[in-house]
Amino acid sequence: MNKSSPWSCIDAHQHCWQLATAEWPTSELEPIYRDFSPLDFAAAAGPDVASVLVQSQPTEQDTEYLLNLARAHRSVLGVVGWVNLAESNAVQRLEHFARDRLLRGVRPMLQGLQNDRWILQDAIAPALDALVRLDLCFDALVFTRHLPHILALADQYPNLRIVIDHSAKPDIAGGEWTQWYGHLVPLAARSNVYCKLSGLITEAAPGASLAVVTHYAEAVLNLFGSERVLWGSDWPVLNLASEYRQWHDFCQKLVKSFDSSAEKAIFCDNAIKVYGLEPGLPEPLLNKND
């Protein structure tokens, strides 16, 4: 696998959707209530930024849609899709989608499920074993209350790469800290657990400045270190609270102050390593001699 990247940044978490087939977002979220495509992403992030495209709908139709986008746009290096891991045919569905090398992980959207221990059901064990066998990541879309169960998952499946999305979405607006931090500490001690520096500003109060997430972001960097933090924008959800370049530049400054040598790992190389990406060439460099 090519471990170097010609891209200036690999955004480890962004979304695309079409309202015609989307259950979410709904109309009250006016800034993001429209279709978003990889071309829109390039306009926000720049033509030299690649990404991991993450599901936003709990349907296999969405997974197919994202894989089609990835095939059509070189800037989409991989897809984290959705499969119902509790279905009796989950292993077969995972094997089906994994035939496409662009599928690099799955995300069951645990935050919206009534059972906080859903992922630990015996019925899901075959699907989790399949994720390991197929070399796919498990993205954990969770809140603080789910973290003890993610810790149990990490211990039961030490060969499963687990990526905590949005730093587990602490309630920054409500001042949550102690429980969130306390649950992250043991997770950070598990070598198979990674954490995304993403999504934090949308957990702050409306209109809050980026500075309010500094304490949380620094905690993630200190706990997981430069080897196991991946930067992501959570675009276009980010548009509810900030702008792409503002979030990128804010995090870049934080990372540089944390460890001046960590920028390349957190903003590029860790996404390649964790998701097993093949960076390829940016669109502007293709056929440059034609």
Rank of each mutant, 00 (worst) to 15 (best):
R145M: 12
V212G: 10
L113K: 14
A204N: 07
S226Q: 12
T202K: 08
L134G: 04
A127N: 00
G175T: 14
V185Q: 13
E243N: 08
L230T: 14
F224I: 03
V213S: 09
E203R: 02
G225L: 08
S167V: 12
L131R: 01
E227V: 11
V106F: 04
L223F: 08
L230D: 13
T214F: 09
D165L: 00
I162T: 00
P108S: 11
L221T: 07
R190T: 12
P108A: 09
K169F: 01
P126Y: 07
W118S: 14
D135S: 12
R161S: 08
G112T: 03
D139I: 10
A154L: 13
I124R: 06
L103F: 06
P236G: 09
H183G: 05
K196D: 14
P206E: 01
H146A: 03
S233G: 10
I150W: 11
S198E: 09
D171Y: 10
A173W: 04
G225I: 11
P206R: 01
A127Q: 03
V185I: 14
S209N: 14
A127R: 01
F143L: 14
N222I: 05
I119E: 10
D116L: 12
D135L: 07
L147D: 12
K196T: 12
L197N: 05
Q111T: 02
L113I: 15
V220G: 07
A123G: 02
T144M: 06
P170N: 10
F138V: 05
A130I: 00
P236K: 13
P126M: 08
L134W: 07
D139H: 10
P186F: 04
R161W: 02
P170T: 11
T202S: 13
L210K: 02
V213H: 01
Y194F: 07
